[in-house]
Amino acid sequence: MDALVYLIPTSLALGGIGLLAFVWSLRHRQYEDPKGDAERILNAEWDDHPKP
């Protein structure tokens, strides 16, 4: 049962990372234009270097 000491915090921390990622995506308006983002990935324009 000693494993629980590591396993529980680990599972909580992993879940917490997921939650933080969700909060970040929400704060940075990642859900503003889902359809546009799905199409933009097909665009090869900035494949070689990032947009300045």
Binding site: E32, D33, P34, K35, G36, E39
Partner: peptide, 9 residues
């Protein structure tokens, strides 16, 4: 300066 399309809207 910049233009950004929102395809959803």
């Amino acid at each position: 300066r910049s233009a950004r399309v929102n395809l959803t809207l």
